[in-house]
Nucleic acid binder design. Structure first.
Lengths: 245, 245
DNA sequence: GAGTGGTCTAGACCACCAA
DNA sequence: TGGTGGTCTAGACCACTCT
């Protein structure tokens, strides 16, 4: 890059990856960078925008340009033990917090994913999955109300109550309640983050999100569907499939 | 968005999704938009940049701001028939072209993925996988040279020759040559596109790429590793896993 | 209130492409 | 050569956060 803002971005990038700025630190303010490099305000902003685009920094009005933590977070799909919890995968400093859980009528998209009529009651649960540096994935999950009822009847706990401590992981509870998951399909894509997502995960607008749609089927019907949204520059999703040749 | 550039972007976005501009068309030039909206040049550019960030348009110097084709392209992973070809998945207008194929020493990363010593010869194949509107995925593949030799000896064709027509899909050839694939692991993430990728897939710099790393193992050793890089706003990758509860 | 980043202007020059 | 987008300036005003 032989532009001014490109050179400034390169210098700042170098300083960040070399550890001269640590995650949480703020870069020098725009007026200071203007003076240091002898350029106009918009030139500095172009440089900062380039870094934000790479996911290295998050400019915050009234605060400064904050250096992000870009340590990768891996999600692995292991068919023989697919329901490992977030904390089991990421250690004790990780948290998986249920932020809401309620009974609602299914909208058109969820109804289609679950193979039910729109308006049928479903339990909608939202979790924020975090590592030390903050929320890295938002998990929206929908479960048909009759399956939630079966789990409650089997002593598994009340899914629609965000305060309820469940007796085990959801798939195990489903199995105990006679709705054992048999097969799961995930569809992965990426897109720009919406403002809500930017706020919860402290993402600069330029960092995309990895979006995973999951539909889990039991015997003859879907038992659960989920949408996972995570910071694309930090998540790695892996899975293994057996082949027959 | 109650900024000027946000409103201009919204109007242009509306016109694009409504079909007033078709893929390949150019938006009105910057000076015309300046006059139409009564704003300064950089305000128009901010609006155009927002659209480029969403993957809707690609500004090209000397040409204009070109509207992109954003039809989604789905990739599905079907364990019972995992080696479906690109054309089988996407129809006759799709192409899967081998752009290079050569014998080379493995670099450190590839050696690690294949479990061999750095410098061991491997066949490196590069394909461009396209749909009607252009290249949407770049597939880099590495195969240990001894396995390529075994395939050649079994009459499957010369992998290192980009002109060679192979007798069947690679995994089938491997099975015939005594190196049947047994298991494959894919790791998916997303990141900004590098300049090469931007050029081959006609991506605006703001559109991220979905990156899939694949390692395929046969009996006791990796038989192949691949890197797939595709336009994240167009690709959907899905896979299905059987569960046991 | 002081300091931060966000938006916007009017004008200039440059790099690139097509006819 | 004329038109396109890309960069850059100097200055202004605004929105937001923190103390």
């Amino acid at each position: 890059m032989d532009t001014k803002y490109g050179r400034i971005a390169a210098e700042l990038r170098e300083a960040i990856v070399n550890g001269q700025y640590s995650p949480g630190d703020t870069l020098p303010a725009i007026p200071e960078l203007m003076e240091r490099y002898g350029v106009a305000r918009d030139t500095v902003r172009d440089a900062v925008r380039a870094l934000a685009l790479e996911g290295l920094v998050t400019p915050l009005r009234g605060v400064g340009t904050v250096v992000r933590d870009t340590t990768p977070v891996s999600l692995s799909y292991n068919p023989s033990a697919p329901a490992r919890t977030w904390r089991e995968q990421h250690g004790d400093s990780a948290t998986d917090r249920v932020v809401s859980s309620e009974l609602r009528p299914a909208d058109a998209e969820i109804a289609e994913r679950l193979g039910i009529a729109p308006g049928t009651p479903v339990v909608h649960r939202v979790r924020h999955q975090s590592v030390k540096s903050g929320v890295v994935q938002i998990h929206d999950q929908w479960i048909p109300a009759d399956i939630a009822d079966a789990i409650k009847a089997a002593g598994g706990g009340d899914l629609a109550d965000p305060e309820s401590d469940l007796a085990a992981d959801l798939f195990t509870l489903m199995a105990r309640a006679g709705h054992a998951p048999r097969e799961t399909t995930e569809t992965i894509s990426a897109r720009a983050a919406d403002p809500d997502e930017q706020e919860t995960m402290a993402l600069p607008p330029e960092v995309p999100v990895l979006v995973t749609l999951r539909v889990t089927r039991g015997d003859g019907r879907p038992v659960e569907t989920s949408t996972f949204v995570g910071a694309a520059d930090r998540l790695r999703q892996s899975f293994t499939v057996q082949l027959t040749y």
